[in-house]
């Protein structure tokens, strides 16, 4: 029976000591300990959230990069195509120009040729006239004794002309 009878003195001292312990630990131990643990948990959560956000940003950035690269590729393709077309055009135009020039040159050359031909014919014509006059002169100068001689002379003259 003694064992299960509470003792006033022991209850008194236990109560006082326990309350003191509780108050001291509350103020100087539990508050800072739990406060720091809570703060640490908060900071860990914040860090995790920040890491999540950074990862999302990174993914977004990567997607953006891909988009930009794709855009650049299409742009480059377009520019290459344009350049090729432009080059083709230039070559085509140059070819056409060259063709026209050649035609022009040909025409000029033909015109020159025909002009010179005409010139040469004129010259021949003039020379023939001069020769004719010369022959006539020679014929006149030689007093023609005979008819035969006369014919011989004309033939000789004609031979000369042919040689010319």
């Amino acid at each position: 029976m003694d064992l299960v009878t509470p003792n006033v003195g022991l209850i008194f001292w236990t109560g006082i000591l326990f309350v003191l312990l509780l108050l001291i630990l509350w103020k100087f131990a539990w508050k800072p300990i739990l406060g720091t643990i809570n703060k640490r948990n908060q900071s860990i959560e914040d860090a995790l959230n920040a890491a999540d956000k950074a990862r999302q940003d990174m993914q977004k950035l990567q997607a953006d990069n891909k988009k930009i690269i794709a855009e650049a590729a299409t742009e480059r393709d377009r520019m290459l195509k344009e350049a090729r077309e432009f080059g083709d055009d230039i070559i085509k135009k140059a070819k056409e120009d060259a063709k026209l020039e050649i035609i022009k040159l040909k025409e000029n050359a033909q015109m020159e040729i025909s002009a010179q031909k005409a010139g040469a014919i004129n010259e021949i014509k003039n020379q023939v006239a001069v020769l004719s006059v010369d022959i006539a002169e020679k014929i006149l100068r030689r007093s023609l004794s005979t008819e035969e001689k006369h014919d011989d002379l004309v033939n000789d003259m004609l031979k000369d002309i042919k040689l010319n």
Binding site: N7, V8, G9, L10, F12, W13, T14, L17, F18, L20, L21, I24, L25, F28, A29, W30, P32, I33
Partner: peptide, 26 residues
């Protein structure tokens, strides 16, 4: 009877040890 008995001293020892431990932890 408000005597300082063995158990009062025992409680006191627990209090001292707990204060030492948890103040150091804090």
């Amino acid at each position: 009877d408000f005597s300082i008995t063995k158990n009062v001293v025992g409680v006191f020892l627990i209090v001292i040890v707990m204060l030492l431990i948890f103040l150091s932890v804090a």
